[in-house]
């Protein structure tokens, strides 16, 4: 079985995210960059699946600038076999563009299964996986929390939704987006990180994929007009003292002032 994982580099979710002076991006200077948290489930599931089926091969891929090599190294240390980085063409970050570039590379490969994370911490659009599936002409299932190979070319998976889960049957090849709960991603061991660090990671340029600049421009369907910080909440009240008194006051406020109950 040939398995691919699509991943991207994002700021650590603990870091303080600030908007730049032009209000068109965040300040990236000094931010710690990590593998998008949901992608860890994708890598783990790919590694696990490969281990369970002899003769399988796993490839991790990212579209990103040079620094994003580090998440590919992490993936290799977690057990992925191969890694590819596609050089980011710059310009507007747009899901459609990202997906069409990724699917061009995937189209050159022989794959049975593609894992992606449920959503990316930075863009939150949850769209690239579905778009890639569409461009490759294969089925897509999102938010997968349980994954089972039931036959040579079929899967039984659980898609988590607002009120429970759907048990879904789907045939290979397909694209699966991974939700928390699917597995427990392993930590890459230091030894393995050191070994992965030495591995040659091929870089694909946009030119090598046969896209012209005009085409790439045409894939940018959206334009960011500006970023804003969500409005702050007005300061609240701190209530301290005897539990009975404090709760009496809270109870009164909730009923009379807030009128929520």
């Amino acid at each position: 079985m040939n398995i691919c994982v699509l991943t991207k580099q994002v700021p650590d979710t603990d870091s303080s995210i600030r908007i730049n002076d032009l209000s068109d991006d965040i300040v990236l200077d000094g931010l710690k960059m990590i593998m998008n948290p949901y992608d860890e489930y994708a890598v783990e599931e790919a590694v696990k699946t490969c281990q369970s089926i002899p003769g399988s091969k796993s490839t991790v891929m990212t579209l990103g600038e040079g620094s994003s090599k580090s998440i590919l190294i992490t993936s290799l240390a977690m057990g992925m076999d191969e890694a590819v980085r596609i050089e980011d063409p710059g310009g507007e970050e747009d899901c459609y563009k990202t997906a069409i570039i990724l699917s061009r590379v995937l189209g050159e490969m022989d794959f049975d299964l593609i894992f992606v994370g449920k959503s990316a911490f930075d863009d939150n659009a949850s769209s690239v996986g579905a778009l890639v599936a569409e461009f490759l002409g294969v089925p897509y299932v999102s938010n997968v929390v349980k994954f089972e190979i039931t036959g040579d070319d079929s899967l039984k998976i659980h898609r988590e939704k607002e009120s429970g889960a759907d048990v879904v049957c789907v045939s290979l090849p397909c694209v699966i987006s991974c939700e928390k709960g699917l597995n427990r991603p392993r930590y890459p061991k230091l030894m393995k990180l050191m070994k992965a660090n030495k591995k040659n990671i091929p870089v694909r340029s946009i030119d090598s994929l046969g896209f012209t600049d005009v085409e790439i421009n045409g894939f940018e369907k959206t334009k960011t007009l500006g970023l804003i910080t969500p409005p702050c909440r007005p300061p609240g009240k701190m209530l301290e003292g005897e539990p009975e008194e404090v709760i009496s006051e809270l109870f009164r406020e909730l009923r009379e002032v807030v009128k929520v109950v």
Binding site: I17, F121, G226, P230
Partner: peptide, 12 residues
């Protein structure tokens, strides 16, 4: 975006 820490204005 950024899990709700920033709001982005986008046009199609």
């Amino acid at each position: 975006i950024y899990a709700g820490r920033i709001l982005s204005k986008v046009k199609l």
